[in-house]
Amino acid sequence: MKEMSVVKKSIITAVCLALCVVLPQAFHAIPNAGSVYLPMHIPVLLCGLICGWPFGLLCGLAGPALSTLFTGMPPVAVLPVMIIELAVYGLVSGLIMSLIRTRKTYVDLYISLIIAMVTGRIVAGLARAFIFARGATTMATWAASYFVTSLPGIIIQLVLIPTIVFALMNARLIPRRYPKSA
């Protein structure tokens, strides 16, 4: 995307951080929303994609912590693993986005998103297995919790996030990645 100023990127990051707190609350009314829609992932991934990896990383690190501080959710017990997972999302989505340029915005978005979401889940699984709950995590439980139960979440986010990015571009709130062409 055409370079945005550091000030603008910083403020977009601040806004995404605030949404890490607000969005999960907004989903309360929907049954099972937390585990299906993974609402906190959306602002973190967006922040990485739009502002680049340093900002995405910050959003992933601080978002869950801020949410715990303000709302008590996620519970402190799962906070460390969640911070690691989200930090990887923000970091990797921004990194891949800056590395690939296919001349098609949505292709770039999908590639960055998929790589980020897979890496984040692997790293979080490893962290859980080797640091936080040694022995309690097996390959099977990890695969089950990170991919099978969250598969709907992954698919949903592959629809949601590019839609939001294009809406923001249309509203001229963020610059287009490739001027004129899609």
Binding site: A18, L23, I30, Y37, I156, Q157, V159, L160, A167
Partner: peptide, 18 residues
């Protein structure tokens, strides 16, 4: 499922980014 939450999520992001 994704389409169902779009009317909620898209406006939230747009007004926040605005």
């Amino acid at each position: 499922k994704a389409a169902a939450v779009l009317p909620l999520v898209v406006p939230i992001f747009l007004s926040a980014f605005k």
